[in-house]
Amino acid sequence: MSADSLPLFPLHTVLLPGAALGLRVFEPRYLDLVRECGRSGGGFGICLILDGGEAGGPATPAAFGTEALIEDFGTGEDGLLTLQVRGARRFRVRRTRVRDNGLLVADIGWHGDLDVDELRPQHGLLAMVLERILDQVGGEHAQASAARFDDAAWICWRLAEFLPLTDAQRQSLLQEDDPHARLDQLLGMMS
């Protein structure tokens, strides 16, 4: 786990690895963040807000978040900048500081799911549930390769994305490093 620095965009939502999220950007500090990402080609961190609001003063973010990579941008009907981002690597916040413009920047350590962990037999039902959900909702993940349905981490993140979980439940999954323990948590949440 290498240490890095990442600007944060705290939200009242949890971005999961592999999930897409649309954002409207209007505050100067976040417009600065987008410009910075455009110059560096890097991403920013999205953390669940534990205390505070999405606009105004700096909010208190959760200790774990997900790197957001910008996939597309445009202008909404209201003239505001719109972003389409995708969740990438998980990270843990070690320390935060507030820039003069109010932007929260974190020193982080990466918590990546680099290896594919094969789905265990006790979690086979979860893969079947996910296949049924994707058959119903369609979308980008409906065309996933068969190999994806053997990847414990991918199964967990897609189920956490589509099931009606609370932000606290999604955050709990995000903070767990072991994909099989995350799947056990999901089974408990579903029963």
Rank of each mutant, 00 (worst) to 15 (best):
V116M: 12
R90F: 05
L23D: 05
I133N: 14
R132F: 07
F9K: 14
P58F: 09
L16T: 04
R132D: 09
L6S: 12
E161A: 02
G45P: 03
P17W: 11
R29H: 01
T66V: 10
V137P: 06
L83C: 11
Q143P: 10
G42C: 10
A168P: 03
L11T: 01
Q171A: 14
P28W: 15
L21Y: 15
D115A: 10
A152C: 03
G41Q: 13
R132M: 08
A55C: 00
G45E: 05
F149Q: 14
L119V: 04
S172T: 05
T166R: 09
N101A: 02
F162R: 02
S191V: 02
A63I: 04
A68M: 11
L130W: 05
S145F: 13
S172V: 04
M1K: 07
R170F: 01
F162M: 03
L126E: 06
G102Q: 03
G22M: 02
L80V: 00
Q175S: 00
C47K: 07
L81C: 12
L159P: 01
A152R: 00
F162V: 01
L104K: 08
D72H: 01
F26D: 05
L165H: 00
R99A: 15
S172G: 05
L103C: 04
M190G: 08
D107G: 04
G74R: 09
L50A: 14
G112E: 09
G138N: 07
A168V: 05
G43A: 07
L21Q: 14
P58A: 08
Q122F: 07
M128P: 03
G42A: 12
L8F: 05
I155L: 08
F149G: 15
L31Q: 02
L174K: 08
L33P: 05
D107N: 03
L50M: 08
Q175W: 00
V25N: 01
H180S: 15
L103F: 05
A152H: 01
M128V: 07
A88W: 04
L48R: 08
V116L: 11
L8D: 07
F91I: 14
N101F: 01
D32S: 11
A19V: 09
L81S: 08
A147P: 06
A106C: 04
L80W: 00
L165M: 00
G102C: 03
D117G: 13
V93R: 06
V25Q: 00
A59P: 13
I49E: 02
V105Q: 03
M190C: 06
L6F: 10
A146Y: 15
A3V: 12
L125Y: 14
R39M: 15
G53N: 15
R24I: 08
P121Q: 07
P61F: 13
P17N: 14
A146W: 13
R39E: 14
L187C: 11
V85M: 14
D150S: 12
A181I: 14
H111V: 12
H180Q: 15
A68E: 09
Y30A: 01
A142E: 03
W110F: 13
L125M: 10
L80E: 02
L15T: 09
E176F: 01
A142W: 01
I108Q: 12
P61Y: 09
G87C: 06
P10C: 00
C37M: 14
W110R: 15
A55K: 00
G57Y: 06
